[in-house]
Each structure stands twice: as structure tokens, then as C-alpha cells.
Design a protein around this nucleic acid. Sequence first.
DNA 1: GATGAATGAGCTTTCATTCAT
DNA 2: GATGAATGAAAGCTCATTCAT
Lengths: 205, 205, 205, 205
Amino acid sequence: MISKEENLLRSAEILFAEKGFAGTSIREIAKEANVNISMISYYFGSKEKLYEKLFEFRMNESLSFSEDVIANNTLDEWEKMVLVMNRYADRVKNLKPFYLIMQREQLVNRNPVIYEFLKQSKKKFLGIYEELIKKGIERKIFTKNPRLEFVHSTVSGTIFTALNTLPVYQEFFEGDDDYEIQYFEEIKIHIQTILKHLLGYEENK
Amino acid sequence: MISKEENLLRSAEILFAEKGFAGTSIREIAKEANVNISMISYYFGSKEKLYEKLFEFRMNESLSFSEDVIANNTLDEWEKMVLVMNRYADRVKNLKPFYLIMQREQLVNRNPVIYEFLKQSKKKFLGIYEELIKKGIERKIFTKNPRLEFVHSTVSGTIFTALNTLPVYQEFFEGDDDYEIQYFEEIKIHIQTILKHLLGYEENK
Amino acid sequence: MISKEENLLRSAEILFAEKGFAGTSIREIAKEANVNISMISYYFGSKEKLYEKLFEFRMNESLSFSEDVIANNTLDEWEKMVLVMNRYADRVKNLKPFYLIMQREQLVNRNPVIYEFLKQSKKKFLGIYEELIKKGIERKIFTKNPRLEFVHSTVSGTIFTALNTLPVYQEFFEGDDDYEIQYFEEIKIHIQTILKHLLGYEENK
Amino acid sequence: MISKEENLLRSAEILFAEKGFAGTSIREIAKEANVNISMISYYFGSKEKLYEKLFEFRMNESLSFSEDVIANNTLDEWEKMVLVMNRYADRVKNLKPFYLIMQREQLVNRNPVIYEFLKQSKKKFLGIYEELIKKGIERKIFTKNPRLEFVHSTVSGTIFTALNTLPVYQEFFEGDDDYEIQYFEEIKIHIQTILKHLLGYEENK
DNA sequence: GATGAATGAGCTTTCATTCAT
DNA sequence: GATGAATGAAAGCTCATTCAT
């Protein structure tokens, strides 16, 4: 049995993804969730707070996983980096609606609470990359020391552009139904290739 | 002397970039442009049509340049590719507000007219890359034949993520006032490095 | 205690009668009913729906009575016809505002829902006249079989023109305050005279 | 070559008939007449004045004819009455749009200028009937002296109700394409029958 | 005389939120 | 704790008319 609160969050995520924050009315959310309108103010305080709650929920999910990877002593830095990147790509693919919202929110500094969420998230990823690269170089796994921003821009940018442009690619290349699934697998390899080049990593050395 | 129509378009671009389509009211646009509200309906027909006009205007600007580059016979394929990419990066940097709007619109299929604009724009760029790579390989300038989608995702994605994440980078790396300018110059080099690798291009061969 | 919904309907009826549908703003209706503007959308959905509701309400009132008359076995066909006609004339007199609206709506096919109401209402009256005349002839109460349309046009037309032209008559004939009341009583007799002639009915035969 | 002024009047008549005064915008009228919007204020002063002009034009047309009939010495009172009534019925049929407007305007006292037009028109007809009946009785052509209002209500009412309800009659009686033409001829006979009865007139006595 | 750009008031409807129960 | 009626502000748009040329 799903609670009304959770139901509202689910409906809100879908609708915010489709129409944006301002473009979605609480009437629609409440209707979609089969819940009375006043419940949104009642449970969350306001439309804005509901939106923040949604971010809080998804961001916390995201944070927990990467930390586990870093702490894992059985993996070397390259493996960790690939794992973090792969998991991120999978997450983006699986939680499309939320990542559409997140991307859109990134483009505008509208709500200070959410801006802070996003900034901390990015900083955390930058911190992870920083440490992995530093240690990888110390251990001579990596032979180059690329500028961190560029690594981040390219990895994140490729994943998100892949997500957003997929329908156009599919049309341009006349892809069939499996196109999307294959595409997401191959783009991970593509990013690995670039990372190897940027970090000067050689497999089976 | 700027016409009222142009004034409205300028104000609208800034406001749509800051607050999104639904989040911007025509009252605000008119006020910002120092023009009577009803002028928006008078000139453009509706808020939606004004938005489309903005896209039409900026997209047409963008289209014309790339075609000139392709037609230029004094450049080889690598030079053309670098030129197209550099100019695109510059344009994104110089027209930040519009490209914020464009990115946001890309995330949702809201308006069919704009969706078509975006699709055609992407297809055009894919077509340019396709031709450049094909000819470059024929002329043995390029030695690898990468998947087109991946080249596009990485180039576009890196540029846009650079744009969107720049404030966070600046804070993370404690950059000074020149950070942005330098950053945009260096990211072009960064993308060139990746492109060389993906295309198997060697300078001064 | 009158509900807000009912209050709105009452105020709307008066104002629509005075100024027509397009000429009446929901602001006026709400102000007249001492109710917040947004209540109109809240209760009825829209101005148009409020208008339809008004028709639905008044038409249903009208339908129920005539059916009772027809079913009454203690009356002969002439008595039934007179009763239906008299009650209709009374109703038009007592619900002037609504019948002004109704006549105006009859002149233009604006709203399909209302058009259907009006058509059904007219057909119902035609059906009643048809049956009464048929039975009256079978029972030799009536000796002529007039064209149905003409009976209807003359009865309805006389009643409505009487209603609409009354102020002019009063001025023309320099009638006093009782003029209206007397007038409406006598016009019923006038219509009966015509009906007797058209149907070939003779009293006290 | 039709002047712009006349063109506007024609278009206005059609549109006012279809949608009423408040429901018709000067934009529509101007568009329909293929004339710039500002021309309406320019030629007529305002939308309201244009409306009045339309009434003035049609009412003057109507007045001139009846007076000719009365002055004609070759006709007796019955013939004059039939002629006036027939011509009125024809006029209503031929100028449907205007008489729709006129009927609607009759239902509401909106514009004092038009109200005066309508009142004078009705009084004039009442005056005509009054004189014809008076003289007819003096000359023993008519043997009854009916109440004037009732004669007027029945004649006018039957004609207008016939006009307005015709589509419903046609559907109810499953009339073919000729229905309308035949109907309008027969209704004149129907009204004559009633008039004979009301006035106690006997043909070929 | 004739035009079309421009105006400000007004329209209906929807918005997020609050209040009485 | 939970509801749905109710609110006032604001939305996009259209209105009749005026004004500068």
C-alpha cells in the first residue's frame, strides 16, 4: 500500500519532468495521484516544498552508492572510475524523469535549496574524480593528469546528451527497437575509450 | 533605434532563460521591454508564437555560418571540423541565454514547431560531421571511423556541460575573474584532443 | 438560506436577460450575487456551462407540468389544450427574464447544447398539440384539422409578442398600472377564441 | 462599385444577426468587409453608431412602403390589410438577418436610439391597423371590432415565430427542400383566415 | 481623407493557498 | 488528522478606440 504522500511524489516527478515546475499545476499532480488538492499544502507545505522534497529524496539515493564504490578495497582506481561512471549512466537511463528535472533545474538558479543540492552533488563527483586520478597517478595506473573540469564535462555531457538526443539519433540512423538498449551499452564503452586516452591508462599493461 | 518588436524579443530571451517559458509572464516581458502588454499579441499573435519567433531567429543565424565553412575549399576536413566546433562553442558562450532556453526545450517535447527546429538543427550537424568524417577518411586525413552519435554527444555534451557547470567549477577550483574566459578557450583545445583521438588524426604528419 | 450556486443562477438569469450572454461579464454576475468571481468556474466550469445549467433548470421545470395535464383523465381535449396554453402563458409572464433569454437564444444557433434543449422543447409541444387534436377529432370534439405548425406559430407567437410588446401597447393605449395584469388575462381569452375557430370547437354543444 | 461604408454595413448586418451586438467584434466586421479596423470609428464614430446606422437604413426602407398602401384609393380596407400583412411577411422572409437583429433588440432595452426606432415602428403599425379597422367598420366591411393589441400580437407573432421555428418544423414534419417556400405562402393564408374571423369579414358577401 | 500602429481597460479562466469543519 | 469549499491574485488574450502620419 502506497501512502498518499509517496503517491504525490511519484505523480509530481512524472509531471514535473514532462512540463517543468511552473508548467505543472498542483491540480494536475493531485488529480494524477487521486488525492485532494489541499493535501499538497497539507503534507508538504507548498508546491515548492514538494519539489524540494523530490530532490532531497533522489539525491540521497544517488549519494549513498558512489561512496560505497570508493571504499571498496578490492578495486583499483581505473575499475572504480569505470564503475562510478557506468552506474551513473545506468541511473540516468533508469530515472529519466528525475534527471530531466535535474538537468532543467541546473540551467536556472531558481530555488536556492535545490541549487545547493546540485552544487554539492557536482562537487562530490569532482571530489571523487580528483581523488581517483590523484591515487591512480601515484600508483602509476594513470600516466596523464588531465584537467578535472574537462574530464567531468566530457563524461557528464556525453551521458546527458546521449539521453536527450537519443530519439533524434534513432531517427537519423533509422534504428530499430533495440537501438536504445544497445546504444546505452556502447556509449559506456565510448566514454571508457575517451577516459583511457585522457588518463593515459593502458589495459593489461 | 531598436524597434518595439526587437525589444520584446530581447527581453523575452533574457526572461525565458531565467525563468522558463511557463515561469515568464507576458506582463513581465512587456514591462521589461517598456512596451504595452497587448503589443505581444499584436506583433506575434501569442506568447507561444513569440517563443517560436525567438527560436526561428536564433536558429537561422546558426544555420548560415556552418554552411559557409563546409563550402570553403581552402580548408581540409580537420580544419573545417575544428572551425565548426570552435564557432559553435563561441556562439554558445556568447548567446548563453538562448542556449539555456534551447537546452531546456530539448528536454521536453512541448511545442511541435520548436521540436522540429531542434530536430532539424541536430540532423544538420550530424550531416556535417558525417560528410567531414567520410571525406577525411577518403583523403586519409582521418584513420579511424568513429560512431557518429558518440562524436556528436561528446562534442555537444562537453560544450553544454561546460556552460552549465562553469559556476560550480569556478567555486571548486577557486578561479578568479579570468577563469571563465580562459576556461572556454581551453575547453576547445580539450575537445580537439578528444577529436584527434577519436578520428585518428595526426598533426604535422 | 439560498446557496451560492443558486444565488449565482438567479443573478445570471437577470443579467443575461438584460444584456445577453456576450454582453454580461462573469464579474457582474459574481458581484450581483455577492460571490467571488472564481466561484463561477468552480461551480459550473465556465460562463458557458453556467448558461447551459440555467436552461437545463428552467426547461426541466417546464417539461414536468405539461405531461401531468395530458395524463389527466378527467379533462377532455379542449380543456387540456386550454390548460396547457394558459399555463404556458402564465409561465412566460412569471418568468419573463428567462423567456427573454430563451427567445434570444432561439434566434441564433450559438450553443449546441441549448439548441438541442430548444428543439426538444418545441418538438414536445408540437407532439402534445398533435395528439390532442387527433384525439379531439376522433371524439368529434373538434371538427377541423388545422395545420399543426400554424397552430403552434400562432399560439406561441401571440404569447411572446404580447410579452415583448407590452410596454409599447401600454404607452399607445395609455394604460394604467393594472394594464399588464388585465392584458395577460385577456390575451388568454383571445388565443382561445382563435383556437376555437381553428379547431372548429363549439362550447355547450 | 460598393463603397467601403456600405460594405461594412452589409458585413455588420450578417455578423450581428449571427452573433448579436456584444458577440460581434469590429475586428470581425472589418475583416469580413476587407477593410481596416479603424475605418469603423472613422466612418461611423463607433461600433454602437454603426449599429444605429444599420437600423436607420432598414427602418426607413420599411416605413415608406406601408404608407403607399394606405394612400391607395383603389383598394378596400380588407385588401389593404392583407397587402400590408403580406408585404411584411415577405420582407421578414427576405431580410432574415436584419429581422433577427431587430427581434433580438426588441427583447432588451439596450440602446435608447434603437429603442425609439422600434417603438415608433410598432406604433406606426398599430396606427395603420387602427385606422383600417375603424374605416372598415364604418363601411360595414368588418363586422367585429377586436382589440388592437391582440390583432397585432397575433399577426406579428405568427410571422416571427414562423420564421424562427421553421427549421424545427421542417425536421418535425420531414419536409423537403420546397418546404420553406410553400410554408411561407401558406402561413399568409393562415393569418388571413384568422384575421377574417377576428374582424368578422366575409368574402363575396 | 485614410491608415495601421498603439493603447489601456476589460475579458474568462486558472493558479497556489487557506479556512471552516 | 483530513477534507473540500472558498479565496484573491494573476494569468493570457481580445476589446473598442485613438493617435501620429
